[in-house]
Amino acid sequence: MIYEGDMMNFTESKVDQVGGIILGVFSLLLYFVIIPAEVVDVQKFGVSPRFFPKTMALFLLFLAICLFVSGYRKKRQEKQKIYAINPKELKLIMKSVILFACYIIAFNLFGYMIPTIAALAMFMYMYGQRKTRLLITISVGLPIVIYLFFTKALQMVLP
């Protein structure tokens, strides 16, 4: 990883090699641990239910090796693609994912209305909306409209 100003830069060869290793470990785990634990071996229906997952695990292992080798071969190339990641952007995405997760938990605990109003307001504020009137109007008005649309027009149940 190379830092250039605010950016975290990763060379293509590094990304491919690391990707190959992660995928390789995952495919081995899949073949030797996950499939034996999660897929029952039934022989009387012709091809076993394990056949396809195992084939896929082996295929993924093959692709992981290809990816690693291609990354290794790119190592000496001068013109490599650089994957630049801005920590600011990454932080915002992580905040969004965490807020999303909190919203799902709150939705499960407290139902639709209050968590939706709160989540909408927080998302809007997080993305830079500072007009109080707009914030309140949309974050309160839209969940009510959605609720009426889903429960009255579409006859669906929202908790």
């Binding site: 919203y103 909408l120 998302f123 809007m124 993305y127 909306q129 949309i138 969940p143 959605i146 929202l158």
Partner: peptide, 15 residues
């Protein structure tokens, strides 16, 4: 504005 459209799309997706 993106400050409105992204949160609204998020909520629509999740609901």
């Amino acid at each position: 504005e993106t400050t409105i459209i992204f949160p609204v799309v998020f909520i629509f997706c999740i609901i």
